[in-house]
Deep mutational scan, measured.
Amino acid sequence: MGQARALMGLSAQLDEELDFREGDVITIIGVPEPGWFEGELEGRRGIFPEGFVELLGPL
């Protein structure tokens, strides 16, 4: 779908969440519900709030 750069780090609180560090580039693979993305980073998949990232182009 597209890519996004992390504006800040996120520590996953639930198993389905993706954790990442500020500056990581995450591949967006879905939008499971409004306000959330599903992404992949370094072979890991999970969901995260859209406010933690900036899109690097259209989805």
Rank of each mutant, 00 (worst) to 15 (best):
M1W: 09
M1Y: 09
M1V: 10
M1L: 12
M1K: 10
M1E: 09
G2M: 08
Q3L: 11
Q3Y: 13
Q3G: 01
Q3R: 11
Q3N: 08
Q3F: 14
A4R: 07
A4W: 00
A4L: 01
A4N: 05
A4G: 14
R5E: 00
R5T: 07
R5V: 12
R5P: 00
A6R: 01
L7V: 12
L7Q: 12
L7S: 09
L7D: 02
L7K: 14
L7W: 02
L7E: 00
M8C: 14
M8L: 10
M8S: 12
G9V: 05
L10I: 11
L10C: 14
L10R: 15
L10W: 15
L10E: 00
L10T: 09
L10P: 08
L10K: 15
S11N: 13
A12P: 14
Q13T: 13
Q13N: 13
Q13V: 12
Q13H: 12
L14H: 15
L14V: 14
D15E: 11
D15L: 08
D15W: 03
D15I: 06
D15Y: 08
E16S: 14
E16Y: 14
E16F: 10
E17V: 11
E17I: 11
E17W: 14
E17A: 09
E17Y: 14
L18S: 03
L18A: 06
L18H: 02
L18R: 01
D19V: 08
D19P: 08
D19W: 11
D19L: 08
F20V: 02
F20K: 00
F20I: 08
F20Q: 11
F20Y: 02
R21Y: 09
R21C: 13
R21G: 10
R21M: 13
R21L: 11
R21I: 11
R21T: 12
E22V: 12
E22W: 03
E22K: 15
G23F: 02
G23A: 06
D24P: 02
D24V: 01
D24M: 03
D24L: 02
D24R: 01
V25Y: 08
I26E: 02
I26N: 00
T27K: 12
T27G: 04
T27Q: 13
I28M: 13
I29V: 13
I29P: 03
I29C: 05
I29H: 05
I29T: 15
I29Y: 10
G30F: 06
G30M: 03
V31K: 09
V31L: 10
V31P: 00
P32L: 05
P32E: 06
P32S: 05
E33D: 06
P34H: 09
P34L: 09
P34R: 09
P34E: 14
P34N: 07
G35D: 02
G35V: 00
G35W: 01
G35I: 01
G35E: 00
W36T: 10
F37R: 05
F37N: 00
F37M: 08
F37A: 01
F37V: 01
E38I: 10
E38S: 09
E38Q: 09
E38V: 09
E38P: 02
E38R: 12
G39N: 02
G39S: 03
G39C: 04
E40P: 01
E40C: 11
E40A: 09
E40L: 12
E40I: 13
L41Q: 02
L41H: 07
L41D: 00
L41E: 01
E42R: 14
E42H: 11
E42C: 11
E42S: 10
G43I: 01
G43L: 02
R44E: 06
R44C: 02
R44V: 04
R45Q: 13
R45L: 04
G46L: 04
G46N: 03
G46R: 03
G46F: 05
G46K: 01
G46D: 01
G46W: 02
G46C: 06
I47T: 10
I47E: 05
I47Y: 10
I47L: 11
F48K: 04
F48C: 01
F48P: 04
P49K: 11
P49C: 00
E50H: 03
E50R: 11
E50L: 05
G51R: 15
G51M: 14
G51C: 15
G51A: 15
G51N: 15
G51Y: 13
G51Q: 07
F52Y: 15
F52A: 15
F52T: 14
V53A: 03
V53H: 00
V53T: 06
V53Y: 04
V53N: 00
V53G: 03
E54H: 09
E54Y: 07
L55V: 12
L56F: 07
L56E: 04
L56P: 04
L56V: 10
G57L: 06
G57Q: 14
G57W: 06
G57M: 11
G57V: 09
P58R: 05
P58Q: 09
P58L: 04
P58H: 06
P58C: 07
P58S: 08
L59F: 05
L59P: 09
L59V: 12
L59S: 11
